[in-house]
Amino acid sequence: MRVLFVCSAGMSSTIAVNALKEEAKKNGIEIEVLAVGTQEFVDEVKNGWDVAMVAPQIRHRYSYLEEAAKEANVPCALIQPQAYSPLGGSRLLAQAKTLFEQRR
């Protein structure tokens, strides 16, 4: 599963990325995760990602990011605030899996 994270500058999501990776490892799921800032997202999302996840603190940019994801045919969702913390790994993984199912 290839997951693309996006936050304001691609910094804070790196921490959530690690939480998600650890959780996936625990569950024996092969996963690749990359965190980018909003500017890079529009181009990066075209590079064959399975799932795009948007950090909660930039939800005011969600519609704009979702549009880019839609064009690239990547299912996209806003990360639940409770999942967006170093301790939210299991919630993150569950959300990523649900999104993964929606992929066409």
């Binding site: 804070s12 999501s13 921490i15 909660p56 170093p86 939210g88």
Partner: peptide, 23 residues
């Protein structure tokens, strides 16, 4: 648990883990 994971990012001025983690 939160303190252990959120302190180091905070040293580098990243506090989303705490803003959403504490929350």
């Amino acid at each position: 648990a939160l303190g252990k994971t959120a302190f180091l990012p905070a040293v580098f001025n990243i506090n989303e883990p705490m803003i959403f983690g504490a929350p």
